[in-house]
Amino acid sequence: MIPSSFTYQKVKSVEEAIAALKESDSKILAGGHSLIPTMKLRLNSPAKLIDIGGISALKGIKESGSEIVIGAATTHAEIASSKVIQGKLNLFAQTASAIGDIQVRNRGTIGGSLAHADPAADWPAAVLAADATIAVQGAKGSRKIKASEFFQGLFTTALQEGEVITAVHVPVFSGKSVYMKFPQPASRYAIVGCAVVKHSDGKISIAYTGVSSNAFRDGAAEKAISGKKIDAGSAEVASKAAAEGMHIMSDHYASEKYRKHLAKVYLKRALLAVA
C-alpha cells in the first residue's frame, strides 16, 4: 500500500520531461492509474517520477483539418464527455466510457493507458480500429507512430527509451463505429474488447484487445466481411475468421478456447451494431 521511496519532479513542458527522463530509472507519471497501483504493491519501484500532469500542452481535444487531436494527458472522462468526440468520434466516447469506473476515468489518461499497453486495456482497440497515429517526442525530436505499429507485445510498445507520448491523432471518418467488451467481472478490464469501424465507403476495420498479448487489427476478419452487406449471415461468416492464427491469452477466468469463442461472438455483435 506504500510505494518505495522515489524523487518527484513536476515538469512544465515536454522538453523538460524528456530532459528529466535521462536520469536512470525514471518514469513518467500522467494520471497515475496504471503506474501507482503497481507501485503500491511494490511491483514497480522507479527511482524518480516525472509528473506531466501540469503540462497544459498535453491536454485537450482539438479539431485540426481532417483529424481530431487528443492530448496525451487528456483524461478518459474528458474524452467521454467531449462534444467534439461525441459528435465526430463516437467510438472514442464509447471506449472512454467503458474504462474502469467514474473515479478512474476522472484521472486516467489516454496517453498513460497507451504507454502502459496493458493487453486488456480498452484504448488500444479503438485507436487501432480508427487508424489513429500516436505522436511521440524524444530527445531526437518528434515522430508519429501508426497505431498498427505501436503495440508490440505484452506491455510493450514502439515507444523508445526517453520518449513521451504527446497526442493521439485520429482521422475523422464518416460511418458507424462501436466498441463492445466482455469485461473480466472483477477488474472490468476486457476479456474481449472489439472495436469496429464501418467507413462510409464500406471499408471495415476490426480491432481487438484482451484477446492476445497485445491489441491487434484482425485483417482476416476484415477481409471476410469487406464488401459484404452486414447481416446475421455475413457477420456469422466473418466471425469464423476472427482471431484465427493469433496467440490467444488464457487465464483462470477465460481459457484460450473460450476467449477465442468470445472474440467471434463479439465481432458478430459489433458488426450487427454497425450494420
Binding site: L29, G32, I36, P37, L49, D51, Q103, N106, R107
Partner: peptide, 19 residues
C-alpha cells in the same frame, strides 16, 4: 477512499499527495 479533487470523484489511494 473516494474524494473530490477539484470537484471530481477520484480514488485518493491512487494519487500522490504531491499531485
Amino acid at each position: 477512499c473516494t474524494i473530490h479533487l477539484d470537484g471530481k470523484a477520484v480514488k485518493s489511494c491512487t494519487l500522490l499527495a504531491v499531485q
